[in-house]
């Protein structure tokens, strides 16, 4: 049954992942055990398979969707202290920008790496980013922008974060077509990634600093 659950997750079968998680719970498996021994190692394996070129983005994202389905079953049963996900990350496209495919890709890749991701969608205000980080006890905010005009608003999130005295506790990672390392440095964002794949590496680096 445990192997079946791992296979369901790896193949992106969200319904089977949800049902098998529920069945394992009924059979007496602990929620923490299911999470730490099956779900998280399997989603990390999916990430490894993607890096090796065995899995592709659609399959990786679907594995993330299956993980979500399984998590929904066990989350209410997990004790608050047993949070085993690597980090909690807020993801969104900056205010004024409705392009969200890049952001969706980043969210999926971060989930595949075993992080808890809160996706705020597109056209997200600086206040919403910071409010969500406080509410979810997140360690990282990832802000996407596709346009040079909307990119400027990324700086407002840094300001809002600093005003909320979260600097050092909540990191900011920026990305998107017009965004560069120089821009990230200029606005005081701690992280920059040129694409969704590098965002996962950069997120890991920042989480090690802020945690």
């Amino acid at each position: 049954m445990r192997e079946q659950l791992a296979n369901a997750l790896l193949s992106g079968d969200d319904i089977a992942t949800r049902d098998l998680t529920a069945t394992l719970l009924e059979q007496g498996e602990s929620p923490v055990g299911i999470l730490e021994d099956i779900l998280l190692p399997t989603i990390r394996k999916a990430g490894d398979l993607w890096e090796e070129g065995e899995l592709f983005i659609p399959e990786l994202l679907q594995a993330s969707a299956a993980l979500k389905a399984g998590l929904e079953v066990i989350k209410p049963l997990l004790p608050a202290s047993s949070e085993s996900m690597r980090g909690t990350i807020i993801v969104g496209t900056i205010q004024g920008d409705i392009h969200d495919i890049g952001k969706t890709l980043v969210a999926g890749m971060l989930e595949s790496a075993g992080h808890r991701v809160v996706d705020l969608g597109a056209d997200v205000s600086p206040q919403s980013f910071v409010g969500a980080a406080q509410r979810e006890a997140a360690q990282l905010i990832c802000i996407s922008a596709l346009l040079t005009t909307t990119m400027l608003n990324q700086e407002s999130v840094v300001t809002e974060r600093n005003n909320a005295a979260l600097q050092g506790r909540v990191g900011i990672l920026v990305g998107g077509a017009p965004v560069t390392r120089e821009w990230a440095d200029r606005i005081g964002a701690e992280g920059y990634a040129p694409d969704a794949f590098r965002a996962v590496q950069e997120a890991a680096r920042l989480l090690a600093i802020v945690q």
């Binding site: 983005i57 659609p58 994202l61 969200d100």
Partner: peptide
Amino acid sequence: GHLLNSGHTRKWFREEFYFPGPSVERRTD
């Protein structure tokens, strides 16, 4: 807003797209 991980995409992308080897660099950076 997208079909990235839809059943349609997962069913067909490996047949519709060719994935080249070392001759091609497709990463942005």
